[in-house]
Design a protein around this nucleic acid. Structure first.
Length: 998
RNA sequence: GGACACGUGGCGGAAUUGGUAUACGCGUACGUCUCAGAAGCGUAUGGGGCAACCCGUGAGAGUUCGAUUCUCUCCGUGUCCACCA
């Protein structure tokens, strides 16, 4: 008998598939027949393919091969997430260039994947480290930049002193260590590029409802985004016209607030510090807090803090004077970095109050305050006009009250932070930005102009300095060493623009070093000012500016009369080097056509965003600072992409970006962009590379676009995506973010990239521990494939258990699968030799198996599908009576070969070929089952007495209830249980059982 | 500390609109083949009992004619999050 020899069969068919380009992506594709199957992008590690990789590729491949046979046009590609730290660390150690070691690792991976018979279109392979790929990663960065979604910010960041780089929150372990090298992460102030993912928080949250992902995964993303509803409340600082804004989810407990706590990083500290009596003590505490890592600031540690002596805030509801503390249990990055403490109803505040002997006022009655009712659902007491209300109605009432009095408002807060994408490393895509240090460090004279204040609008600038971002911005600018003129203009209720311009000219000097900022009608003041001045300024920054007198609020006739409105923008545009128009992307106050018209007339940059508050009237509008801080920065022009990663660098990490040491990196930059301009030396987080790779697979050689609109339309979104659960709050969130930005920019017509997503489980070592060199339990998939065959390797991994579950490796299990495959082989050889055999009795079982396997493949239950195949083969051997073995007819055996082909494609091709077929089995039609054939003529009826099985009897399939009843009562065993009694009740389940109740 | 998931033979696991628990594979035992072993093949295999039968899906309770499946409490394991006001 011909012996099963996997290594020769497998090599033969792999070669056949490759030379005939069997898995070339089809072109005759429609929305209905397309099937985009995506295995997660691997990092090509120097250690080669892992059994976990094999699991992902095999599962996707089985699905892909099945869908092909169902007539679907399948797109399946593999690429490489090739940038990243391990290659660079290896370079530091060995001085081998990362490109060299990475390409070598890729060659190895590719070979290993091919040896598993994975059916991908290798002509579309991409690597994120290739310039024709990272050109588009850089293009994406510029797209974000253009849309106001990329900005620089100085912030305390997670810093790994061993890797000498910044880490994203997702890359820091729960005990505050670097994910890669386990060094304790410290906080360090650095200026970084950020992507404004927070602007998409609500959509990232809401759209989870429309995708087919594991529920747990969606929940984890929801928690990560962390939406909470509450209110912002403004507390006036005593003996000052300034205030502190806090965020709270429990405004109903406002009467119980007895002190205020600021985060050590709080921006308010700077404003207060001059008045503080114990300044040195406070500064010492802040200094110490800054040194602490998140690890040190974790819970269960005792609360610590320091009072700002000599300053108080006033509780807006009852005028109570509250002390202010700085404590590191309040986080600087969440909310406003300040809280109102309600010790009676918040565990943390309670702990703090107890330690520092602070007042505790109970405002919620019901239950034991200190144990149960931190949250509780009691009714309000000690709360004046809220007394007697339940939490929910009290919350509504207090928010209305706050809004009416202009001391607070409803607010939705997210936990999600913006995404830091700068890395001080070499092996990544260079950030396509240029900077000019002279311009960055240059000090300017800022003139900040408010708008119309005539309606008494509490949220408008009417309240003078208090209510919008002007004062906040002024403080920041002054801190940075600029000079600022931020006047309350005369006659703001009946504005006369000419008069206001005169006032400005009289009170400050405007020249080439001036930056003009105008909000709303302040924009009009600027137009007039520039006309009158007839001089150039550095920059004009217009925030939701009024363009025409028919300002939407018709109740403001004063606006129309404020000036003549005959502006010659064509002339005005010459009076500034740069114009920026910032508008509300929802055009709630200033219309889209006006903003676009203005930006176009002034040849300015239009940035649309979601303001913190309608018409940019919030006390803090971070986008304004973000945009201003971009002075001295300029994007590389698109036609100059890619910014090539140079070769002449020293890899040694110094904390500075290695690209700073390249001589060639900045070659020609000044010539092209002007004196003083240099390239940004940082590289992009590799998560940016992997956030859009599934688009590139569609059109990998396109040099003009990241992918053509036709290709995008044809193939996206991804129909099935398989990847690890570790990427839930990183890669998967970022990919959704990228897709939504592309959607908003009009490149695509869908806003979720992955329709159906599943996770694979972890494959553990034979000792049930995670595979690791440390335990010596690592299984190399290529070794297994070499010893037992790729078909065995594939089928075993799928047979181990459910795809999404963690499961330990078992070499004996591998042998069992190999035994099964050998039986299939031997059986096939017999069928081929004895073509006359025709045993119809197997047909029923075969058709049942077709049904079972089709259903299991649809729901990715590969383990039970394989069990069904085993059962079928076993049946054939059981049929053996005497010497004769039951054999399928040739046509039935062909069906069987089709059924196993997605799992074990090589042996399937070989058997198919032995059966006389010249064409590959890959595009054969998937077998259909005949529902009539699988209809059993009889079934085993279970007879229960009081729910317990007492007898079974073989009965016709279409047996009636009356007959069943008769059969049941006739059974000897049952009669014994009935003891002559009549059953009280008889329950009949069709096709299954009958249950007698006595 | 919180959220979620999970808990079935010696092991990986099957079975849920509530309906014959342990499919399939591994392991084990015995048999067959062999000079012998390995491999292969065959039979058996949840526990107790000679048997009728009884007990069994982490523990306890509940709903039901009937619960691995639904509800509650508890125990254990795993994963993720971690002072988010």
């Amino acid at each position: 008998m011909k012996k099963y020899n996997p290594s020769s069969i497998e090599k033969k068919w792999q070669k056949y598939w490759e030379t005939n380009k069997i898995f070339k992506t089809p072109t005759d594709v429609t929305k209905e027949n397309k099937m985009y199957i995506l295995p997660q992008l691997p990092y090509p590690s120097g250690f080669g393919l892992h059994v976990g990789h094999a699991e992902v590729y095999t599962a996707c491949d089985i699905y892909a091969r099945y869908e092909r046979m169902r007539g679907k046009k399948v797109l399946q590609v593999i690429g490489w997430d090739a940038f990243g730290l391990p290659a660079e660390n290896y370079a530091i150690k060995t001085n081998v260039h990362p490109r060299k070691s990475t390409d070598k690792a890729i060659d190895n991976f590719r070979k290993q994947i091919k040896a598993l018979g994975i059916s991908v279109d290798w002509d579309r392979e991409v690597g994120s480290h290739n310039p024709d790929y990272y050109k588009w990663t850089q293009w994406f960065f510029l797209l974000f930049y253009k849309r106001g979604l990329a900005y620089r910010k100085k912030q305390a960041v997670n810093w790994c002193d061993s890797c000498k780089t910044v880490l994203a929150n997702e890359q820091v372990t729960s005990d505050g260590k670097c994910e890669r090298c386990e060094t304790v992460v410290v906080q360090r102030e650095m200026e970084q590029w950020y992507l404004k993912i927070t602007e998409y928080a609500d959509r990232l949250l809401k759209d989870l409802d429309k995708i087919d992902w594991p529920e747990e995964t969606k929940k984890r993303q929801r928690d990560w985004i962390g939406r909470s509803e509450g209110a912002e409340v403004k507390f006036k600082i005593k003996d000052s016209d300034k205030e502190i804004t806090v965020f709270t989810t429990r405004p109903d407990t406002l009467f119980g607030s007895t002190f205020m706590v600021l985060a050590p990083e709080s921006v308010y500290t700077a404003e207060l510090i001059n008045k503080v009596l114990n300044r040195s003590e406070v500064e010492k505490y802040i200094g110490e807090a800054k040194l602490k890592t998140d690890l040190d600031r974790q819970i269960q540690k005792e609360k610590s803090g320091v009072e700002l002596k000599g300053v108080k805030v006033i509780n807006p509801v009852n005028g109570a004077e509250l002390p202010i503390y700085i404590a590191d249990y309040v986080l600087g990055g969440y909310g406003t970095g300040a809280i109102m403490a309600v010790p009676a109803h918040d565990e943390r505040d309670f702990e703090f109050a107890k330690k520092y002997g602070l007042k505790i006022v109970e405002v919620l009655k019901g239950g034991d305050i200190l144990k149960e009712a931190f949250v509780g659902d009691g009714e309000l007491v000690n709360s004046d006009f809220l007394n007697g209300l339940q939490i929910k109605s009290a919350t509504e009432k207090i928010i209305s009250w706050l809004e009416e009095k202009g001391v607070g408002k409803r607010k939705i807060q997210y936990k999600l932070r913006d995404w830091s994408v700068s890395r001080q490393r070499f092996w990544g895509a260079p950030i396509p930005m240029l900077h000019n240090d002279e311009l960055i460090n240059k000090k300017y004279h800022y003139v900040i102009l408010h708008g119309y204040t005539g309606t008494g609008d509490r949220n408008g600038p009417a309240a003078g300095d208090s209510y919008n971002w002007r004062r906040w911005l002024k403080n920041k600018l002054v801190q940075d060493g600029h000079t600022v003129f931020c006047p309350d203009l005369p006659n703001t209720t009946e504005p006369n623009i000419e008069e206001q311009v005169e006032y400005i000219l009289k009170n400050t000097e405007i020249n080439e070093e001036t930056i003009l900022i105008g909000h709303s009608l302040g924009g009009v003041v600027i137009y007039k000012l520039l006309e009158k001045l007839n001089k150039k300024v550095t920059k004009v920054f217009l925030v939701d500016p009024v363009v025409r007198p028919e300002f939407p609020d018709r109740a403001r006739p004063a606006v129309a009369k404020s000036c003549d409105w005959n502006f010659d923008f064509n002339k005005i545009k010459n009076f500034s080097k740069e114009f920026v128009v910032l508008g509300d992307a929802e055009f709630k106050t200033i219309f889209e056509k006006d903003l676009r018209y203005l930006a176009q007339q002034l040849n300015g940059n239009l940035v649309l965003t979601k303001p913190a508050e309608r018409h940019f009237t919030s006390a803090q509008e971070p986008i304004i600072v973000d945009l201003l801080e971009q002075a001295g920065w300029m994007p590389v022009s698109e036609s100059d992409l890619p910014v090539i990663l140079p070769n002449d660098v020293d890899f040694k990490p110094t904390g500075e970006s290695p690209l700073n040491y390249s001589k060639s990196f900045n070659k020609g930059v000044e010539k092209k962009y002007g004196k003083g301009w240099k390239r940004e030396p940082d590289t992009l987080d590799t998560f940016m590379c992997s956030s859009w790779y599934y688009f590139r697979y569609l059109d990998p050689k396109n040099d003009l676009e990241f992918a053509s609109p036709e290709a995008l339309k044809k193939w996206m979104p991804v129909d099935f995506y398989l990847g690890g659960p570790e990427h839930v709050n990183g890669h998967l969130l970022y990919s959704r973010f990228f897709t939504k930005v592309l959607f908003d920019a009009g490149y695509i017509d869908f806003d979720e990239p992955f329709i159906k997503h599943r996770h694979q489980g972890l494959i553990l070592g034979e000792d049930s521990r995670k595979m690791s060199k440390r335990w010596g339990n690592v299984i190399n998939p290529s070794d297994v494939a070499d010893e037992y065959g790729a078909d065995t390797m594939r089928m075993y991994e799928m047979f181990m258990g459910p795809l999404e579950q963690d499961k330990p490796w078992d070499t004996n299990g591998v042998k069992g699968v190999r035994r099964f495959i050998e039986r299939v082989w031997n059986y096939g050889v017999e069928v081929v030799a004895d073509k006359n055999t025709n045993d119809d009795s197997l047909s029923i079982d075969l058709h049942k198996t077709v049904k079972k396997i089709t259903e299991d493949l649809e729901s990715m239950k590969f383990n039970t599908a394989i069990a069904a195949l085993m059962i079928l083969i076993n049946k054939m051997y059981v049929k053996k009576d005497g010497e004769g073995k039951a054999l399928f007819s040739v046509s039935d055996f062909e069906i069987f070969v089709k059924l196993i082909s997605p799992f074990t494609p090589h042996i399937a091709e070989e058997l198919w070929n032995m059966l006389g077929h010249k064409e590959s089995i890959v595009f054969e039609k998937w077998p259909e089952f005949d529902p009539a054939k699988i209809q059993d003529k009889t079934f085993t009826l279970a007879i229960q007495v009081n729910g317990k099985l007492r007898d079974t009897v073989e009965v016709p399939a279409d047996i009636s209830e009356a007959e069943v009843r008769q059969k049941a009562l006739a059974s000897e065993k049952i009669q014994k249980w009935l003891e002559g009694k009549e059953p009280k009740k008889i329950i009949f389940v069709k096709g299954k059982l009958v249950s007698l109740v006595i």
